[in-house]
């Protein structure tokens, strides 16, 4: 058995059936697979899939300009960049805040379904996809950070100021849920069948 944290191999026959084994090197509990991996990942992915709806439909930012308030959703922010011909930046934000969360949820659903129904094709590709999902998960926080910096910096009193709106909470929750989903998922389950 491989320790999840430090990677030490521990002989499985050392422990009697049903007892908990601890890693001699880092004292972590050792199990063959993460506990309840599939159920936990399902729960987190479904939560993320629900939360992503308000995250995209509700406004995420409010810009006050000379007394008029303007709310904008994530998509509005991206369109703003495309209208002002900043295609590169628009594309980065589009990928980080719309494509990546969607890809994560759909990709994890695919992996979970293939374990649940024991589909045994494309395993190497699914493993690669999971590693990719693990890697890109954090980049969705980009939009939240942009709003945080904007609302701290752009505050010229009544002339113009930037504020946060409700979708920020939902969007952060989507990122947190999908990151936890990737963490609780054990990729070795893909190969078990």
């Amino acid at each position: 058995m491989r320790c999840h944290d430090c990677g030490k191999l521990v002989a499985a026959n050392k422990a009697p059936e049903g007892s908990i084994l601890f890693c001699p090197r880092c004292n972590n509990q050792i199990h063959y697979r993460f506990t309840n991996s599939i159920a936990r990942t399902w729960a987190l992915i479904i939560t993320a899939a629900i939360l992503i709806v308000p995250a995209n439909l509700l406004p995420i930012m409010r810009v006050d300009f000379l007394g008029s308030q303007e709310y904008s959703t994530i998509m509005d922010g991206i369109l703003y960049f495309f209208h002002s011909e900043e295609y590169g930046i628009g594309l980065i934000i589009f990928i980080a805040s719309i494509l990546v969360p969607l890809f994560k949820i759909i990709g994890m659903l695919l992996i979970l379904l293939s374990i649940q129904f024991k589909w045994k094709t494309w395993l190497r590709h699914k493993a690669a996809m999971f590693r990719f999902i693990q890697f890109i998960g954090r980049w969705s926080m980009l939009d939240i950070f942009v709003i945080a910096v904007m609302s701290a910096l752009v505050d010229f009193g009544s002339f113009t100021s930037t504020h946060t709106a409700h979708a920020a909470t939902f969007f952060t929750a989507v990122v947190v849920c999908s990151m936890f989903a990737a963490m609780t998922f054990d990729p070795r389950l893909l190969w078990d069948s």
Binding site: I89, I93, Q134, R138, M141, F145, V146, V149
Partner: peptide, 22 residues
């Protein structure tokens, strides 16, 4: 995985582009 200063840095660059016209 939870420490993301490099993403924050990109966010700062995006902010700079957003407000450079303003």
């Amino acid at each position: 995985e939870w420490s993301m200063p490099e993403i924050y840095l990109i966010a700062i660059f995006i902010t700079i582009i957003k407000i450079s016209s303003l």
